[in-house]
Amino acid sequence: MEAFLSSTFAVAVAEIGDKTQLLAFILATRFKKPLVICLGIFAATILNHAAAAWVGQWIADWLTGDMGRYVLSASFAAVAIWMLIPDKVEAEESRFYRYGPFAATFVLFFLAEIGDKTQVATVLLAAMYDNYWAVIIGSTVGMMLANVPVVMMGKLSADKLPIKWVHRFSACLFLVFAVLTLTHG
């Protein structure tokens, strides 16, 4: 349960103000089909985060002992610093728009998520917790918690949040993961 809750919370907080959340808003305003956009985000996230969790499990098997703990802790600390750098997304026309709202959302969201903070966080969480499915489900729930309100209510929900403070809080959360990794090895 800890892996699920940690993954849900970490990804939900990390996603606020992230480029994929901005992309979700752009797609929602472009297509005006919120349910279809949400389904595309869900499908892309499941696939992307399943791959990320697999990589995290592989890293955990490969890096063991103190060296693994130190690398994982340093990685969480690096993500904490990365959280303080704001994301931007361009609202340009995409060639994927012609395939409709689901396909465009699926492809664009999947591609935008590659190497994104939340994907890297999923890799690290899967390396930290030996519970592949809990991390995938938790990170997907976190992604949906952050993106569904933006899609359903438009930019209103994101504009009302103090993004700078959300990013600082998220950075602190990843620092906590770094410390916990070091102290619980």
Rank of each mutant, 00 (worst) to 15 (best):
T8D: 02
F9I: 15
F9S: 09
A12T: 01
V13C: 09
A14W: 15
K19E: 00
L22W: 02
F25M: 04
I26G: 02
F31R: 11
K32Q: 14
P34W: 04
A43F: 15
G56P: 10
Q57T: 11
W62I: 01
G65C: 12
D66Y: 11
Y70H: 12
V71D: 12
S73C: 13
S73E: 12
A77Y: 12
A77Q: 12
A78K: 01
V79D: 00
A80T: 03
M83H: 03
P86G: 00
P86N: 00
R95Q: 09
Y99T: 04
G100H: 07
P101D: 10
F102L: 10
F102N: 04
I114R: 05
Q119L: 08
L124R: 00
L125N: 10
W133V: 14
W133F: 15
G138K: 03
T140P: 00
V141M: 03
V141W: 01
M143I: 04
A146F: 00
A146L: 00
A146P: 00
P149F: 06
S157H: 07
A158C: 04
A158K: 06
L161V: 15
R168T: 12
R168N: 03
F169T: 10
S170Y: 09
L173F: 05
L173P: 00
F174C: 07
V176L: 11
V179D: 06
L180N: 13
